[in-house]
């Protein structure tokens, strides 16, 4: 393993990236993804049988990794508050259920979420904001920077930004790169930066790998699959490729980047499959809410119902979990 570094500031230089040309060259000379191999490996890992005790552990781990999300035009303050309550005590009748990883909302709801979480004693739960003209990312750089600053000032400690897929697909990598650098600078020490690749729009697995490296070198703390507004979203092969990227990046730089699949993960089974991928591809060091999150809303109820089933010994009903 290469020597460990603590600073991200000179990453681009270490990768030999100084301009548009060198960045393009680096990304385009990354090894191609074996599509059939990646899909087969993801399917194979998805068939792992997880036995009772491990499953109980996995369910609680998955709950603590959920970024409980509401990103609807119809979001109200009341809905965000009830989401915060649920984030803090997913099952109000059972204090042994861990709190979720974060609450993820649109910018204008950040303040409400932060103050409500503080008021119910959930100071440790961060608020994540989707900034930078989410979900399309179609706005000027100034607007995106302002959007980010706005979210941080309102109390967001995690920023979920989208990359400019149009620029990426046109080959303007440097423009995408510079934008991430600029947003990261805006985040500074106050907020974690998650970079959404929107893999459903990137067309090929090779592009997923390239976008992952681009984001990591530009300073992302997390790479996230999708906005949740496009299908396909967090498919197992895509998550596998991103986990390979963070693992290889760690081996080369000593910097551990997190991964956040989002969109389409609705059942406990889906979530546990993701945890198997994390363990097998990236390694057990990533099995922590600090390095792996799952963007979801319906998933939490299914995890709770599985928990009821394990506790009570009979199948649970959705009548006993809250509806968002």
């Amino acid at each position: 393993m290469s020597q460990l570094r603590t600073s991200k500031s000179d990453l681009a230089r270490d990768f030999g990236i100084s301009d548009d040309r060198s960045l393009s060259l680096f990304l385009k000379t990354l090894p191609g993804v074996d599509q059939v191999g990646a899909e087969a490996r993801a399917v194979e890992l998805g068939t792992r049988s997880i036995k009772k005790e491990s499953k109980a552990w996995a369910i609680d781990m998955a709950i603590s990794m959920v970024d409980l999300t509401t990103l609807e035009g119809a979001d109200t303050e009341g809905k965000v508050r009830s989401l915060c309550n649920k984030a803090h005590r997913p099952d109000p009748t059972d204090p042994s259920v861990p709190h979720v990883g974060a609450v993820c909302v649109y910018n204008d709801m950040v303040k409400i979420a932060r103050s409500h979480l503080d008021s119910i004693g959930a100071n440790e739960i961060p608020v994540a904001a989707v900034a930078t003209a989410f979900p399309s990312g179609r706005a000027s750089r100034e607007v995106k920077l302002r959007d980010t600053r706005d979210a941080i000032e309102a109390g967001a400690s995690e920023i979920d930004m989208v990359i400019d897929r149009g620029a990426f697909l046109s080959g303007h990598y440097k423009s995408v790169f510079d934008e991430i650098v600029a947003i990261k600078k805006e985040c500074g020490e106050k907020a974690h930066l998650k970079v959404i690749l929107e893999t459903g729009e990137l067309v090929t697995y090779d592009n997923v790998r390239r976008a992952s490296y681009l984001a990591m070198i530009a300073g992302a703390d997390f790479i996230k699959t999708s906005t949740g507004k496009v299908t396909p979203a967090a498919t197992p092969p895509v998550v596998l490729i991103m986990l390979q990227a963070v693992r290889d990046f760690f081996d080369r730089t000593g910097i551990r980047i997190g991964v956040k699949p989002a969109g389409g993960i609705r059942t406990s089974k889906d979530a546990i499959k993701q945890l198997v991928l994390v363990n097998e591809i990236a390694g057990p060091e990533w099995l922590s809410p600090a390095y792996f999150r799952i963007g979801a809303s319906a998933l939490l109820n299914d995890l709770l119902m599985q928990r009821f089933k394990m506790r009570d010994g009979y199948y649970a009903s959705s009548n006993y979990v809250s509806i968002e």
């Binding site: 010994g313 009979y314 199948y315 649970a316 009903s317 959705s318 009548n319 006993y320």
Partner: peptide, 8 residues
């Protein structure tokens, strides 16, 4: 038993 106890 599973059918008789199923909460749904």
């Amino acid at each position: 038993p599973w059918l008789a106890s199923h909460m749904e």
